[in-house]
Computed example of a mutant assay.
Amino acid sequence: MVEEQDKLLPVANVGRIMKKILPPTAKISKEAKETIQECASEFISFVTGEASDKCHKENRKTVNGDDICWALGSLGFDDYSQAIARYLHKHREFERVRASTAAASSSAALELEASDC
């Protein structure tokens, strides 16, 4: 059985994110952190549920970033959808570059090993 607390984002992480936007001298009550924790967790669940429904209708088992972007737009969060789509594009590009760099260094290492023989 899944406990209610297990469905929520970690409150320490929520508090850390909240502190980043506030002045350094600002204090955040435990109640405020818990309220934001519940709201953020519910929002994530709401969006993920919409994306999951789309995947189910398309006979897919895996929710991906494009599904989340679609769900945000479908639910009326167009500004978030566009921002997340831009981030997702940048992230994928970064991963492509990183993968090709890793493949190139691996190839170079193999060539060095072969030349040592």
Rank of each mutant, 00 (worst) to 15 (best):
Ala12Phe: 00
Ala85Gly: 11
Leu112Gly: 09
Ile84Met: 13
Asp6Ser: 13
Leu8His: 00
His89Trp: 10
His56Met: 12
Glu93Val: 04
Lys30Pro: 02
Pro10Gln: 03
Cys69Ser: 15
Ser106Pro: 05
Thr25Ala: 12
Asn13Tyr: 03
Gly73His: 15
Glu4Val: 04
Asp66Asn: 14
Asp53Gln: 14
Asp6Pro: 06
Asn64Tyr: 02
Leu22Gln: 08
Glu113Phe: 12
Ala40Ser: 08
Asp79Arg: 15
Thr35Tyr: 10
Thr62Gly: 05
Arg86Lys: 15
Tyr87Ala: 07
Glu31Pro: 06
Glu4Tyr: 02
Ala40Pro: 05
Ala114Arg: 15
Asp53Cys: 09
Ala85Phe: 07
Ile17Leu: 09
Glu3Gln: 15
Ser41Gly: 04
Lys27Arg: 12
Pro24Met: 01
Ala26Leu: 06
Ala109Met: 02
Gly15His: 04
Gln37Lys: 04
Gln82Arg: 15
Lys20Asp: 00
Ser106Gln: 11
Thr48Phe: 07
Gly15Glu: 11
Ala103Phe: 08
His56Ala: 08
Cys117Asn: 14
Glu50Cys: 15
Ser45Glu: 09
Ala51Thr: 03
Glu113Ser: 11
Val47Phe: 09
Tyr87Ser: 07
Phe94Gly: 09
Gly49Asn: 09
Ile21Phe: 12
Val63Tyr: 01
Glu58His: 06
Ala109Lys: 11
Val14Ala: 02
Val63Met: 07
Asn64Met: 07
Lys90Phe: 11
His56Arg: 10
Gln37Glu: 02
Gln37Phe: 05
Cys39Asn: 05
Tyr80Ser: 06
Phe46Tyr: 14
Pro24Ser: 03
Ile68Cys: 02
Ile28Asn: 08
Phe77Thr: 11
His56Cys: 06
Ala51Tyr: 03
Phe46Gly: 01
Ile17Glu: 01
Asp66Cys: 10
Lys27Pro: 00
Arg98Ser: 11
Ile36Thr: 13
Trp70Thr: 12
Gly76Ile: 06
Glu31Gly: 10
Ala40Phe: 05
Ser45Ile: 02
Ser107Thr: 06
Gly49Gln: 01
Glu4Gly: 01
Ser45Lys: 13
Asn64Ala: 03
Thr25Phe: 03
Ile44Leu: 15
Gly65Val: 05
Glu113Trp: 10
Asn13Ile: 04
Leu88Trp: 08
Ile28Asp: 09
Gly65Lys: 01
Ala12Ser: 00
Gln5His: 00
Thr62Phe: 01
Lys27Trp: 02
Thr48Cys: 07
Leu8Ala: 02
Ser100Pro: 00
Val63Glu: 02
Gly15Val: 05
Thr35Cys: 13
Asp79Phe: 14
Lys33Glu: 00
Ile17Gly: 01
Glu111Arg: 12
Thr48Val: 09
Gln5Trp: 02
Arg96Leu: 10
Thr25Lys: 14
Leu8Cys: 00
Ala85Ser: 14
Ala109Ile: 01
Ala99Thr: 13
Leu75Ser: 11
Ala104Val: 07
